[in-house]
Nucleic acid binder design. Sequence first.
DNA 1: TGCCATAATATGGCGTACCAAAATCATCCA
DNA 2: TGGATGATTTTGGTACGCCATATTATGGCA
Lengths: 231, 231
Amino acid sequence: MNDDAHGAAIRVERPTKTLRELALDKVREAIINGYFRPGDRLVERDLCAQLGVSRTIVREVLRHLESEGLVANLPNKGPIVAQLNHDEAKQIYEIRAALEGMAARLCAEQNNPAIADALDKSLEDIRHSYREKDMAGVLAHTSSFYQTLFSMVDRHVAWGVVNLLTVRINHLRSMTIKTQDRDVQGPAQMARIVDAIRRGDGDGAYQAAMDHVTSASAIAQAVLTGRQLTD
Amino acid sequence: MNDDAHGAAIRVERPTKTLRELALDKVREAIINGYFRPGDRLVERDLCAQLGVSRTIVREVLRHLESEGLVANLPNKGPIVAQLNHDEAKQIYEIRAALEGMAARLCAEQNNPAIADALDKSLEDIRHSYREKDMAGVLAHTSSFYQTLFSMVDRHVAWGVVNLLTVRINHLRSMTIKTQDRDVQGPAQMARIVDAIRRGDGDGAYQAAMDHVTSASAIAQAVLTGRQLTD
DNA sequence: TGCCATAATATGGCGTACCAAAATCATCCA
DNA sequence: TGGATGATTTTGGTACGCCATATTATGGCA
């Protein structure tokens, strides 16, 4: 028996998060929730002051966000918050459709009732958040629904990809869920996914997942073009 | 008419690549081609010396590669070259199958003969490289085949995802293309994709693309488990 | 002799100061 | 008034130093 055994038990489990990671989360959060708007310049030394960290950290954070696609770098001009154009948003939804469809099919083919049960749990959370008008909760539980979809079949790489893409359309997501009837249509579409999974219907689950993302994409396109989908 | 019009014409068009980008490419290349092996520690100060750049640059590069999945960071130990396990490789192939299948279907639905022609061109390059035993050429032209597949239908985001994932399995790719009969089977499978696209057969193109990646994945799995697929 | 406490070393995390090049802004003069 | 000129801002990049932690050496003590 190694001496880690009793040492680990009382280990203070300090969050090993480095300052850089904390700063990364802060800035990413600030971009996602709109504190920094698309097109805003991210002046290094200003960020240093606002975050209270050194330029070293800020530069690493900007590099990281750049590779995540949240920040764009203009040569000799510096970093700005990436602008999401129309077409790119559409492509992101399309990729999500393909991957979430794939995951849904895999879930259905598992024939494991625990999967559908776990998804139903998330779905109930989503409905509850809608009733409470807690839009942040809706987003969080929707993410958790999809995370379950991927993690139940051990597809954490695909989940990582979806997650990476999703942060880039986050502000669109928060608009789509607020559109008319989405509080009813959204959960209904997700319920169809769960039903197909419970039936072990791979094709059905695939289609249902594709349909859900596709309708979200349509709403996002409408939002982006300024039109409203009221009828 | 703005005065950029004639100014741009004589612009010296210096490669705007920053030192950081150059270093990034160097290190990425070094990992991909095996100069740094999976599990190797990447000591910052050593890299500074080898690359001839400052620690700031090296750190930014490491951060970038970390978010690409090529480098892993052990807490309190520092960065190492990421190890690709079995299961992750399988997941990456699976994602490629989904996205390349999607792109192939979209190409087929375009009914534009120029697409199939462009793909045939890449395919011929691949066959030529095989004949010349130029394995680097095979990889390059295979990438270009898929890049065409995505760019012909303007799916650069999906292409970016595929590209990002592909670098992580690069050493597997260079092994799969060297296995028995791959010089015949590989191009044959890709020709099926092109044929389906030329026929405007979306489902066929989707299936053919899936099949090609799936067979590559099977070979990769065999390579990873040390077995040989000789029969 | 074997083991434990301590010191040295290696390394990542972080900060500061500095310089050069490019872009932008302000100013001043013909 | 228009354009050249200089000042300012900001990024790209470098060098150096400090601290904390982890590993390894080392030396002393029972």
